[in-house]
C-alpha cells in the first residue's frame, strides 16, 4: 500500500487572491513580519501495492491530468509505503 502526499500550488508569478487575503488578515492581527502567503491544496491518495516506479508514474500522471492544472499550478508529492495492515 502506498500513500501519496500531494501538494498543488499556484505557480510563482500567478496572482493568488486567497493568499493575499490571508496575508492581509495576518497583518491586521499584528503579524507584521509576515511577507507573503500562498494558499494551495494538499491531497492524500492511497494506492494498492505495486512497484515504486509504477506507483510514482501513476501519481505523476494523475497530478498532470486531473489534480493540477499545468497552466496555473505546479505539484509535488512524496510517496511512502504503508504496512499491509493499512490495506482496506
Amino acid at each position: 500500500m502506498w500513500l501519496a502526499r500531494i501538494r498543488v500550488m499556484l505557480k510563482k508569478g500567478v496572482l493568488d487572491p486567497q493568499g493575499k487575503a490571508v496575508l492581509g488578515a495576518l497583518q491586521t492581527q499584528g503579524y507584521k513580519r509576515v511577507q507573503e502567503v500562498r494558499v494551495g491544496k494538499y491531497l492524500e491518495v492511497r494506492l494498492h501495492s505495486m512497484g515504486r516506479i509504477e506507483a510514482e508514474a501513476e501519481v505523476e500522471e494523475m497530478c498532470r491530468r486531473l489534480l493540477s492544472n499545468p497552466v496555473i499550478e505546479e505539484f509535488s508529492f512524496e510517496l511512502d509505503e504503508l504496512p499491509e495492515s493499512a490495506e482496506r
Binding site: 500567478v14 487572491p17 497552466v71 496555473i72
Partner: peptide, 17 residues
C-alpha cells in the same frame, strides 16, 4: 472548455475573492 484544453488559459479566483 478551458480545463478540456479546447480553449487556452485558466481561471483563478476573482481578484477580490
Amino acid at each position: 472548455l478551458l480545463e478540456a484544453g479546447l480553449l487556452p488559459g485558466a481561471m483563478l479566483r476573482n481578484r477580490d475573492l
